[in-house]
């Protein structure tokens, strides 16, 4: 119990003293996971919408695969990405193992099925006649898709939150492909693992609290956007 109190005190000490290392780690976490979420948003929403709006043989199988992907174990993604990009791997010429790039790639792979699955479900959940109605009003196909995406804004923002929440709190892939290099690829989760290993439990708890505050602030912003649309 005493340790938890110490951790909370330490968290505010680190935050209020603007400790440059902790600020750097926090900022890097936000950058990497934010970029990864944006990438996943692009692929997730577009593919999710496409699958939802088309019919083709084996559609149920594809949907099952996407839904399974929502639970993709980060450490397996980390292993797969590592093998692809290390020097002897097929993408070794890129030389991006142990860089923030590699972390963005791995996190985007983790977040994409989450965003895709939620987008798919939310578009499918719209009343089926809506499509016909929009087309009947003379909208082009692209305009129709855009209106549908707008109609499911609420669940889509939930998809962003789920995707971001999934990657900012993820550690297995980040430590494997990023390497937890000081001042370069060390993020809040990997630093927490390391400080726990070092026995600095107070700092580890402090980093955990900073991670929660960060996730809270991002979600607060997104919820604000989401709910404002709702109230109109």
């Amino acid at each position: 119990m005493e340790l938890i109190v110490q951790g909370i005190v330490k968290a505010f000490e680190l935050l209020l003293s603007f400790d440059p290392e902790v600020l750097g780690i926090t900022w890097l976490s936000l950058k990497i996971s934010g970029t990864a979420t944006f990438i996943s948003l692009f692929f997730g929403v577009s593919i999710g919408t496409a699958v939802a709006l088309t019919t083709f043989p084996g559609k149920r199988l594809v949907i099952s695969l996407i839904n399974t992907g929502m639970g993709l174990p980060p450490v397996v993604v980390g292993l797969f990405v590592t093998i692809m990009i290390w020097r002897s791997g097929p993408l070794g010429f890129l030389e991006i193992l142990y860089t923030p790039y590699a972390m963005i790639i791995a996190q985007a792979i983790i977040a994409t099925p989450i965003v895709m699955g939620i987008s798919l479900a939310s578009i499918q959940n719209l009343p089926p006649n809506l499509r016909l109605q929009i087309l009947a009003l003379g909208a082009s196909r692209m305009q129709m898709v855009w209106v549908l995406i707008k109609e499911s804004k609420l669940p889509l923002l939930a998809a962003v939150m789920a995707g971001f929440g999934g990657v900012i709190s993820e550690v297995g892939a980040s430590i494997m492909v990023g390497g937890n290099i000081k001042g370069y690829s060390r993020v809040l989760t990997t630093a927490t693992v390391m400080e726990t290993g070092k026995g600095n439990f107070d700092i580890a708890i402090a980093l955990g609290i900073i991670l929660l505050i960060l996730a809270f602030l991002v979600n607060l912003l997104l919820t604000h956007v989401q709910q404002r649309q709702r109230l109109r």
Binding site: W27, L30, K31, I32, G34, T35, I96, T99, P100, Y101, I104, Y184
Partner: peptide, 10 residues
């Protein structure tokens, strides 16, 4: 902006 920082670092 963040992504460009990452680019510069590499």
């Amino acid at each position: 902006l963040g992504a460009s920082d990452v680019l510069a670092a590499n």
